[in-house]
Design a protein around this nucleic acid. Structure first.
Lengths: 344, 344
DNA sequence: AAGGATGTGGGCAACGTTTTCCAAATGTTT
DNA sequence: AAACATTTGGAAAACGTTGCCCACATCCTT
């Protein structure tokens, strides 16, 4: 099928003004409900807007001030935890004029730079960066040119707000739970990290630290056993294989993320062992996967929705008041016990 | 004396022009490598651009021409199949100047309207609409004002291109497979649909039709049995319960989507039956869930990546040539046999 | 009744690009 | 050497908003 392009010219503020018999200034004022408009004019302009089906050009607005657009940088759409955060952001933003756009697949520093640049180029009013891996200076720089909230990365900055989960507490919850079930040989699969800043700021590093601290607190320093791979299903598989090959096998594994636990599940099944009969397993994130019946994974719940909502709130606040002090919101996780952990 | 402003002013094309000692026109030409620039000028301008770290304002560009932005409307980030499509789009677009932004959570007509409006307001150069539910007239209207590709919806339009999977063939693949295993009582769980246009265009309706046609082709018209619920886990659960309550139980269930199969799995387990011992089960989409070891679901693979890549290709083509005829790309699915289907 | 406050509406200059034009310089053909 | 074609670079007008002004009309004080 085919149809010649009908070049329907866009309805502009000028058309509305002419149609209502007022100036463009007047229309603009009504649209933004600015000071200096009589009820009579307001209704005339509104009528014209409706009749003509006028919509303001965000592009033109961008040149003057706001675009009513906020960008969310997502490392990976496939991670359901990020989807929770997104829900929270979206929910909060639904009550406002802002429209949310997101990007995905920013797994490295180069991509992150490209995406943040792209968002700044498009004059977005605010940015939410979820679990960014860029250098701190880079983030600080970005936040200097546009209001920014960083989610899921510890540490404070003079230019951006941040929202995190208390990963140290979360890890401790898991260890406490396993210890209370009688476990002592509790191993951990972590995401490998060497860079000092990232060791301090990335959630994975905090979880590993929380695990260590909690083990020590339970007088189990000697039982600390960490497989250092990555926060992927593959990483979980490999990590679990490492741990299962130990001379004395752990009786419980704390995987740093739910996807890691999934990979571990495969490795455990492959080794002919059962969960939680032979070995207990806990994850982190309480994603939909963890809740899924046949899997039913004990996991730490971060309430991503809440994190997202907080991020959106902070962002809107900062857009409206750029010079207010930065804030750090830290939420407390909870443990959701399911069927992959049991008494020894 | 006043202090200099804290926020560094943006570097504009004027700054570059001054720094290079040429006109803004010249800079613009070099940037877009337009006709009428000497090699000497090109190098001077490029040097100035680099030295000043200049980046063109997409906002300003939008007012004149392209924004180099394409928008992808995603119904739901949580559906991993959509993520595959997204990967395909992103992969293809990475080779171009275009930046991709997406929205999610457009589950109804109102939201879809809001999102498409928002994308048009922001002068995006092109739109990819994934499995939209809006009325066809609405989509046609949108496509009239901006190049648009619709993914996952059958039927052709004079204004937009479309990319689909051949759902009828896909459904037939499942039926053929089950018949070859000796099954005759093969039931189907569909997403309920009444609207005539949607009945013709939505993938779910096509799958139901493919199921019916294939059954008839195998002389099994009398065995056709459909539970009409929805493409959700809950829908799968309820649908399977309906089917299991039949006087003569089906020996195989073809679920219209992987999530539906998951729900069905729960219902089957609840009824004290095993898969594939008592009953065979197949899904559609070959999502990561289907591939996941413990589940290992037989499913139809749509190659979302390929669909996305095609969509991106068509979109860029149309952006560059708005009056070319619309095209419909239909891809052939394949069956991935796993452990939920077995001989009777 | 004069003066000042307040309310109401519009003119106009940005904002940062792109895109015609157009002029000058240079090259090529008679 | 004149006429014409091509190349090179710039001036200036959009594009659709917003926000700072200013002008005028009312209304309220003294």
């Amino acid at each position: 099928m085919h149809e010649p392009p009908v070049t329907a010219r866009r309805v502009t503020i000028v058309d509305v003004a002419r149609h209502a018999g007022v100036s463009t200034t007047a229309v603009s004022k009504v649209l933004r409900n600015a000071y200096g408009t009589s009820p009579q004019m307001r209704s005339r302009v509104s009528a014209a807007v409706d009749e003509l089906g006028y919509r303001p050009s965000a592009a033109a607005r961008a040149l003057r001030g706001r675009t009513w657009t906020v960008g969310v940088m997502l490392p990976d759409v496939r991670n359901p935890f990020f989807a929770d955060i997104l829900d929270g952001v979206a929910e909060h933003l639904d009550d406002t004029e802002y429209q949310l756009f997101m990007t995905s697949g920013c797994d490295d520093v180069t991509n992150e730079a490209r995406v943040t640049e792209a968002m700044i180029d498009r004059s977005m009013d605010g940015l939410v960066l979820i679990a960014p891996v860029s250098a701190k200076e880079r983030l600080t720089e970005v936040a200097r040119s546009v209001p920014t909230v960083v989610v899921g990365r510890h540490g404070s900055s003079p230019t951006y707000d941040s929202v995190t989960d208390d990963d140290i507490t979360g890890a401790a919850l898991v260890v406490d739970h396993l210890v209370s079930l009688g476990h002592r040989r509790i191993a951990h699969i972590e995401h490998h990290e060497t860079d000092p800043v990232r060791l301090a700021e990335m959630p994975n590093a905090q979880r590993a630290r929380g695990y260590r601290d909690a083990m020590i607190a339970h007088n189990l320093a000697g039982e600390i056993d960490i497989a250092s791979t990555s926060y992927t299903q593959q990483g979980g598989y490999l990590g679990a294989r490492q741990l299962l090959a130990r001379r004395i096998r752990p009786t419980a594994i704390f995987a740093g993320a739910d996807v890691v636990a999934l990979g571990a599940l495969e490795a455990i099944a492959e080794a002919g062992l059962t969960v939680p009969g032979d070995i207990s397993l806990a994850g982190y994130d309480n994603s939909a996967l963890a809740a899924f019946g046949p899997i039913s994974l004990t996991s730490v719940d971060q309430d991503g929705r809440q994190m997202g909502a907080n991020a959106a709130r902070l962002l809107v606040e900062r857009i409206n008041q750029r010079d207010r002090r930065t804030a750090q919101v830290k939420l407390t996780p909870t443990l959701v016990v399911r069927r992959t952990t049991a008494a020894i």
